[in-house]
Design a protein around this nucleic acid. Structure first.
Length: 319
DNA sequence: AACTGATCGACTCCAACCCG
DNA sequence: CGGGTTGGAGTCGATCAGTT
């Protein structure tokens, strides 16, 4: 971001549960749903689930322990019986509905770079990730095509992992994050192993939940490649051979986010990585993710994550 | 070094329109 | 009907200057 003024939008930085007024679909951030910005697990006693179609910027795994339920993913009603898991990729419109008062369930939320520090896929590119390169994404990619329902014995293992994660999350110390990551990978890996045949067959047929236009793909690629400098809507639109206004609408429709919102989200994800894994000064981190003004960067960071960049760095190093 | 306040203009949003 | 464009009004993010 150089000297040019950078822009806003009616759809500013998502406030708690980003209101998408056009569609009524909200986009939640970790800070909206969790005290922690990296990982959270909670059960049905903590708070009711969101029962309206919504998206989030993070990964989500839901586990229905008992009781009738169903979930709706991208408008398609899917099974979600007792002893089953559902895996939700960032930005997928979905919701789960449980039988009132009768269901027991767990919800796990985790940030996009929680499993791998070097995770470099843009959220929308995740939908077409290779399962050889990103095996941990497999159940997320094929949610809606496979019902991840377990037998009693297998689910005992799943439930034990969930309970273990809940205990770890409740009392974090130095090293706990690594244990949480390990247990989470075990949960995902266990699921992938149990459904390996179906998942490999789907992967072989290159079945995806939804395709996106080439134009949008060009846009997201361009944004990711130029995050570190000033990018204007006009420039991106030109690179994607679209009109700026149409690009604005397209992005909103596909992601629920306005151009600057999306750009800032990607910038902040990269900033989080730099803060937790390098000793770069705040000024340098701000510059590296395209903010010429560290002050402004700090404010946007706090707005998004509920804490300052330095506070975030301390928290990450301490946990 | 990190953060806040005040200001201004780039961008979003929306409705109407074109085109195939 | 879906993909794309146009144009104007109002919003809110980027910046500079100042403070902690």
């Amino acid at each position: 971001m150089t000297s040019r003024r950078r822009p806003p939008a009616g759809a500013a930085e998502p406030r708690a549960g980003a209101p998408d007024e056009a569609s009524g679909i909200r986009t939640y951030r970790m800070v909206d749903r969790s005290d922690r910005l990296d990982f959270e697990i909670r059960d049905h006693t903590v708070r009711p689930p969101v029962v309206m179609p919504h998206r989030h910027e993070f990964f989500q795994i839901e586990a229905n322990v008992s009781g009738e339920a169903h979930h709706v993913l991208a408008g398609k009603r899917c099974r979600y019986p007792a002893r089953s898991l559902i895996f939700i990729l960032p930005y997928r419109v979905h919701y789960a509905a449980h039988e009132p008062g009768a269901s027991e369930y767990y919800v796990i939320n985790f940030a996009t770079n929680f499993l791998r520090h070097d995770f470099d896929l843009s959220p929308l590119d995740m939908e077409e990730a290779s399962i050889a390169e990103y095996p941990e994404l497999t159940p997320f990619l094929y949610e809606g095509h496979v019902d991840f329902v377990f037998g009693e014995r297998d689910f005992r293992h799943v439930l034990a992992l969930l309970q273990h994660l809940a205990v770890l999350h409740r009392d974090r110390k130095l090293g706990t994050i690594e244990r949480i990551r390990g247990a989470l990978l075990e949960l995902i890996g266990f699921t992938v192993e149990r459904y390996a045949d179906e998942l490999e067959a789907l992967s072989g047929r290159r079945v995806y939940m939804q395709g996106r236009t080439d134009a949008l793909r060009r846009v997201l690629k361009f944004i990711d490649e130029h995050l570190q400098r000033d990018i204007s809507l006009n420039e991106v639109a030109e690179a994607a051979f679209l009109s700026p206004n149409y690009l604005s609408q397209l992005l909103k429709k596909q992601t629920g986010m306005a151009f600057v919102e999306w750009l800032t989200a990607r910038r902040m994800e990269r900033a989080q990585h730099l803060l937790s894994h390098t000793g770069e000064r705040i000024f340098a981190v701000a510059n590296a993710v395209g903010f010429a003004d560290e002050a402004y960067f700090t404010r946007r960071f706090r707005q998004r994550f509920g804490q300052s960049p330095s506070g975030y760095r301390k928290a990450m190093r301490g946990s």
